[in-house]
Design a protein around this nucleic acid. Sequence first.
DNA 1: CAAAACATACATCCATGCATGTATAATGCG
DNA 2: CGCATTATACATGCATGGATGTATGTTTTG
Lengths: 240, 240
Amino acid sequence: MPRRTREEAEATREALLDAAELVFHEKGVARASLQEIARAAGVTRGAVYWHFRDKADLFRAMLERIRMPFEELVEALPASDRPRSVLETIRLASLLALERMEEPRFKRVHGILIHRCEIFDDIDPVSMMREMALTASANTLEQFRQAERDGELRPEIDAETANRLFHCTLRGLVHSWHLDTDAFSLASSGRELLNHWFGLIENTDSQQSLTQPEPQRHGQRREHHAPGHQGRGQGRSQPR
Amino acid sequence: MPRRTREEAEATREALLDAAELVFHEKGVARASLQEIARAAGVTRGAVYWHFRDKADLFRAMLERIRMPFEELVEALPASDRPRSVLETIRLASLLALERMEEPRFKRVHGILIHRCEIFDDIDPVSMMREMALTASANTLEQFRQAERDGELRPEIDAETANRLFHCTLRGLVHSWHLDTDAFSLASSGRELLNHWFGLIENTDSQQSLTQPEPQRHGQRREHHAPGHQGRGQGRSQPR
DNA sequence: CAAAACATACATCCATGCATGTATAATGCG
DNA sequence: CGCATTATACATGCATGGATGTATGTTTTG
């Protein structure tokens, strides 16, 4: 029964995008047929060609849906409720990003981007990943520069180096996770790893009278494995 | 004119693998047709189906060709001409690996693995990457454990953490490079990054009378590397 | 009544798999 | 050692299916 109301039309569009995520993730972008996606959404190929020009357009729309909220997160990076140290801000923001990546939608779409689509002409995931990497890197670089000025950084490394090291570590962590997402929890492993990482680059000569004493921050540094609930502890001081 | 000699047959097989690398890298694995690969190798599809069962088999054979020499490298990791410190050994071996990755063949095949093929049933790049990651990690973990026993590691981090950090950093670097291989040199950027990284984790309390003084190492790059013999460059075939 | 929001039908293309052809190198045999 | 045979190393042709793009039909809503 064609000619639904406008809200229904938007609903089928979203259903198509949801179905695209699932089918792309299951079969890969190239082997996924529009027929399958349409069927998974409960419609026919006609609906697909009405809402999208072709498969590449559908793919781009699927990416757009996660690009915006994710960039919001990246740009919300400097915003911190408390005037903590700059390094602390970066650390918490990255942890937030890692937790987001474990949400089903981001996990699926990133899984598609990383292991289930091929770069070619119209479909080009790399350009988007590169773009996101550049903006994110520019943002954190500003933060690391500030940290350097504040004397939070160990003197032997500059802000640029710290920034590069940081993004390599994070990217490597995410890619390692996507090699087998069931092997470990990205958020909790990332938290532990980042604790160690920031412990390595932060200045230990605490002449920092600017910031509050901050009693030990890596309290359980020798005690790695946090007490066992382990289940993506998101409710901890993280505003939604 | 069929029925070539055995060496010629092996030559066309190699030519097919070379062509597969090129075409896979150009169009992606899914969109590359066996027709195209055969033409690029100067033969017809008949030759492809003679040497390989199907596209997945060809893909696997292409991977096999780089898997073996690369694992040789990984396993040659502990072998060091000079009794340097353990951390130094890891650093130099990783640098060697990074230099290898800039060689055309490894660059192409890794580029295919990372951005130009989709995981699915028969074609599964992830399992190979995971396998290589595990063996490499097991090897370096042994090294880091030895470094820990020798007191080369900063006391606040253990061998397991150092190993995880190390592989995340390396993986992140390689993936960043593959986002745009023309943006920077993997070897030289990697050398700089690794210098800083090992500077961060190594123990500064130099009670190490075991190793030679080794003046400042940071930012310092002395001789490039052994002008190696390039190893097994036999695959030069491509008739016509 | 016109356009939106699809469903249906149709034509086209092309990659795959296999079957068959074929000429030559390798091999066994007398 | 010559020769027939056979397996080899492909080339060619055919059949198939499945995906794509588009054209057209069908309601219903605004």
